[in-house]
Design a protein around this nucleic acid. Structure first.
Lengths: 143, 143
DNA sequence: CAGTATCCAGCTAGATACTG
DNA sequence: CAGTATCTAGCTGGATACTG
């Protein structure tokens, strides 16, 4: 069945668009970065536990304590993903019990720097967004 | 029951951390931006249908055609959210049938500009990430 | 300490059908 | 044309229990 119908063309366009998105670098980056814990881990490793100061390695338990909301499952899963992507390095020291530290790689550090651009936008513009949101909701309220 | 036990302190820390995240501007921005269709609509309205050239208003059907993968539900839902946040403006022209155009606001445009920073990072570094990922997977394969 | 394994509730987003 | 309404499958992520 060749795709000559309108529905067929739409389906075809969708498949092609999906294929385009699958190779789009920006989209891949967003998929990695838009994870809740990814950015928080990046920030923790990139700015230290107090969110100011330089990047420094941190232990699993230290991260776990700092990101108080994270489950073990998600922390491990996220760290593994970041390691796989070359953004974070994992170092095991065979003490008893074992010591594991995580640290941003050069690549991870450069991504962290880039993310700070977003942070700056958020800090200077999110109040506007929030104001607009509140205004919009108030208008809807009094209908 | 006061939180004096270790488990209680952990639970307390988690609640406080959640509260912190709830007011963190960066987090709020990420929550908005990390939606699949948000960035694509921002890009469409900000760079035109051919992804090069300046921002320009687009009609609902035009967006629908350009973002071939989007469902009507998600397109409408996303546009409404962007409008609520003051990033996109919606204009209805009472022709027959009705014509609706969407356009980036100044705020939306400034966010779009910021997002291009991420795009640039993706274009120059995602190949490294992908290479690391492939390398990692190959190593796991031959275990 | 630093994980792994399993189960499942909740939310999201797609498909589908209908409308001013 | 530009939506709204509804249903549901599938995935995500949290809770929980166990381990080298």
């Amino acid at each position: 069945m060749s795709t000559t119908s309108a529905a067929g063309k739409r389906a075809q366009a969708k498949i092609e668009y999906d294929a385009f998105l699958a190779v789009c670098p920006s989209r891949k980056l967003l998929e990695r970065v838009s994870d809740k814990w990814v950015t928080l881990i990046l920030a923790a490793l990139g700015s230290g536990p107090d969110c100011q100061g330089g990047p420094r390695p941190m232990r699993y338990s230290e991260l776990s304590r700092l990101l108080a909301g994270v489950s073990q499952k998600m922390l491990t899963q996220t760290l593994r993903a970041l390691e796989r992507d070359g953004l974070v390095s994992r170092t095991v020291t065979p003490t008893v019990p074992v010591t594991v530290t995580y640290e941003l790689t050069a690549l991870g550090l450069s991504l962290h720097e880039t993310m700070r651009t977003l942070k700056r936008w958020a800090e200077s513009h999110m109040d506007q967004v929030l104001a607009s949101r509140a205004h919009h909701d108030r208008a809807a309220q009094s209908e």
